[in-house]
Simulated scan of single mutants.
Amino acid sequence: MTAHTPTHPRPKKKSRRGKFLIITVLVLGVLLVAADFALAAAGEYQIAQRMREKLQLNEDPSVRINGFPFMLQAVRGDYKHVRIDANGVPIRNEQQGLDLRDLDISADLRHTRVELADLLAGNVSKATIDQVDGSIKIKALDLNRLANQVTPFDKLSIEPDNRLATPTPAAGATTTAPKTTAAIKLSGQTNVAGKVVTLTAYGQIALASGAIQITVDDIELEDASLKQIIPQLRQALAIKIDPGTLPFGATPTAVEVESGAFILRGVITDVPLVQR
Rank of each mutant, 00 (worst) to 15 (best):
T5H: 06
P6N: 08
T7E: 05
H8Y: 05
H8T: 11
P9Y: 09
K13D: 10
S15E: 15
G18V: 12
K19H: 14
V27G: 09
L31F: 07
V33G: 03
V33M: 07
A34G: 10
F37P: 00
F37A: 14
A38Q: 02
L39M: 13
A42C: 01
A42T: 05
E44C: 00
E44M: 03
Q46Y: 03
Q46P: 09
I47D: 03
A48S: 08
R50T: 01
R52F: 01
N58H: 14
R64D: 06
I65V: 10
V75P: 01
Y79L: 02
Y79G: 09
Y79F: 13
D85I: 13
D85M: 13
A86W: 03
A86K: 10
N87D: 13
G88S: 14
L98R: 05
D108F: 05
R113A: 11
L120A: 07
D133V: 08
D133S: 03
A140M: 07
L141T: 05
L143Q: 04
A147V: 06
P152G: 14
F153H: 00
I158L: 14
D161W: 07
R163N: 09
T166S: 11
T166C: 02
P167L: 03
G172S: 12
K179M: 11
T180V: 14
A183W: 01
S187N: 02
V192D: 10
G194K: 02
G194F: 06
V196T: 07
V196M: 11
T200Y: 04
A206V: 07
G210M: 12
G210T: 06
Q213V: 15
I214F: 12
T215Q: 06
V216C: 08
V216G: 07
D217R: 01
K227I: 07
K227D: 14
L233Y: 11
L233S: 08
R234V: 05
I241M: 11
L246A: 04
L246V: 04
L246E: 02
L246S: 04
G249M: 09
V255E: 04
R265W: 03
V267F: 00
I268Q: 01
I268D: 00
V274F: 01
